[in-house]
Nucleic acid binder design. Structure first.
Length: 506
RNA sequence: GGGGGCAUAACUCAGUUGGUAGAGUAGCUGGCUUUUAACCAGUAGGUCCCAGGUUCGAGUCCUGGUGCCCUCACCA
């Protein structure tokens, strides 16, 4: 990568210093206001002295007059600099100004001959930061998807819509946080470095602590720590947790992503279902998806999704019967379906009557994902999952084949997963041991988290818990086809020509 | 990891059958006191992703590599 200092701009930088101006002053003028606020309040503010600060993104110059487009976080406002209104020193700075520089302008708020609200600089014009790299093309901006992600800072300042979408993301998360706080939840932080990984099925990133000489894993889920807090008597907890899964990348997968997990004592999965619905609706409202008549609608990948509550609810077994065409407990019928639907499935040749519960129901779930999930555009809550594939969920008291668990589907993606949390320490231990013994599953936990079992042995109150995939939810709410467009800095391989130091053995 | 596509100036993009590397914007110089992608004149700017090969000659054809995109697999 060549040095990103444009020679012409280095000259302008020297010119600025020649004029006695600091190209990187520490302080900006006081009393700075946002352009959008000034435009909104123009009727009351016309003729007043105001100060704006921002990046110069456009310039139309006339020798003794210049129009500047000044962009701040609120948007664009025009500054007008005229030779006969400014001091000679300030006007001379225009010669050293380039697009991309930050400036402040103090002067009269008024309209131009064409009627545009502008700040007519008179008492001050200052270059606040000299840019040494050219901004992108003014009309098309930065268009290359790779460069937009690698240089998000450029993408953000050169494309108003991109910046607005990322600000919407933070508003969505704030709205969800507000829902938790209204319900008496406490926001907590739990470890990212885990000696034993668990709480989900996924391959972890492995790291190493030098001083302790121990292997650690980046968390794949915060679940087991959050539930320890229920044992400790913190009855409502949530964490917006960055988690890490060592798997492939795709338009829906980034190695690190954000989920919110939340746990509440003295409720169950149906309580979590109600809260999840509220959270999704609050996020959708924050994204501006609510119409005047109160209906909420998201457009995603060319499809329209009605997010006006209540969302559809359907039992797992009922959905299976409806979309797969057979009773999921009918092993012979399920295997017939397997032969038709997934002939390459590894359990295809097994005798279903002899199969253990876990292997059988995992196969049922493979069919569910193939036949049922694809038929559920959502928003929909699917509830009462097979207990055998739910190691952390409480089995139903009525029929232990099923567990008190739901998943939430929207836009063809699984966005949330919730249970009545399993708090029987003996049953939990047995399920953990069964998982660890399953050497065929590369994503099974490496060892039993005995400390978690011990925590349960002290007693965890009955509780509901849920995890929501924040990035995917935001994809739907902001109509972004790829997860990269909702992550400020999605994972990228090293840029060509910037990596491999000599001596790196392969 | 498999299959397909793309890579040319700071940015957006052209580049004919294999025959001297192009435009617009941004930049630089000059002009211009009401513009909205301002305008006019002039000017500079390139490891055509990287490494090989074919050829008198490669941005163009071939092989390998790298990055990105799409897709499949795994997963949320």
């Amino acid at each position: 990568m060549t040095a990103p200092f444009h020679p012409d701009r280095l000259q302008k930088l020297a010119d600025l210093r020649e004029l006695g101006a600091d190209p990187y002053p520490a302080r900006s003028p006081e009393g700075r206001e946002l352009g959008a606020d000034l435009i909104a309040a123009f009727a009351q503010r016309e003729g007043q002295q105001v100060t704006i600060c921002g990046r110069v993104t456009g310039r139309r110059g006339y020798g003794k007059l210049a129009f500047l487009d000044v962009v701040d976080e609120s948007g664009r406002i025009q500054a007008v600099l005229q030779k006969d209104r400014l001091s000679a020193e300030d006007f001379a700075l225009l010669k050293a100004l380039n697009l991309g520089d930050f400036v402040s302008v103090t002067g009269e708020l008024a309209t131009t001959g064409k009627g545009e609200i502008s700040v007519f600089g008179d008492s001050d014009f200052t270059i606040l930061t000299k840019a040494l790299e050219n901004p992108p093309e003014k009309w098309y901006g930065l268009a290359d998807a790779e460069q937009r992600a690698r240089r998000r800072y450029v993408d953000l300042f050169s494309n108003e819509e991109v910046r607005q979408d990322f600000l919407r993301r933070t508003r969505i998360i704030q709205a969800m946080r507000a829902v938790f706080l209204e319900h008496g939840y406490h926001e907590v932080e739990t470890p990212v470095l885990h000696p034993i990984y668990g709480g989900a099925n996924a391959r972890p990133f492995v790291t190493h602590h030098n001083a302790l000489d121990m292997q650690l894993y980046l968390r794949i889920a915060p679940e087991l720590y959050l539930k320890r807090l229920l044992v400790g008597g913190i009855e409502r907890v949530f964490e917006f947790a960055r988690v890490f899964r060592n798997e492939g990348l795709s338009p829906r997968h980034n190695p690190e992503f954000t989920m919110v997990e939340f746990y509440e004592a003295y409720t169950d999965y149906l309580g979590m279902l109600e809260l999840t619905e509220q959270l999704v609706v609050a996020g959708a409202r924050a994204a501006g998806l609510e119409a005047e008549d109160g209906t909420i609608c998201a457009e995603f990948r060319g499809q329209s999704y009605n997010l006006t509550p209540p969302f559809q609810r359907v039992r797992y077994a009922d959905a299976f019967v409806e979309h797969a065409g057979c009773d999921p407990t009918d092993r012979a019928a399920v295997w017939q379906l397997l032969a038709q639907t997934l002939p390459e499935h590894p359990q295809r040749q097994a005798d279903p009557a002899q199969l253990g519960d876990y292997s059988y129901w995992k196969t049922v779930n493979d069919l569910f994902e193939e036949k049922v999930e694809t038929a559920l555009p959502g928003p929909v809550f699917v509830y009462d999952y097979p207990a055998a594939i739910c190691p952390l969920a409480k089995p139903s008291a009525d029929d232990p084949v099923w567990a008190e668990r739901f998943e939430f589907f929207l836009g063809g993606m699984e966005l949330a997963n919730a249970f009545s949390e399993l708090n029987d320490p003996q049953l939990q231990l047995a399920k953990f041991e069964e998982q660890v013994a399953d050497k065929d599953d590369p994503e099974a936990p490496n060892e039993v988290d005995l400390d978690y079992v011990r925590a349960l042995a002290y007693g965890m109150p009955p509780a509901g818990g849920c995890g929501i995939g924040i990035d995917r939810l935001i994809m739907v709410l902001l109509n972004k086809d790829t997860i990269r467009d909702v992550l400020l800095f999605p994972h990228m391989r090293p840029e060509a020509g910037t990596e491999d130091e000599p001596g790196d053995a392969e």
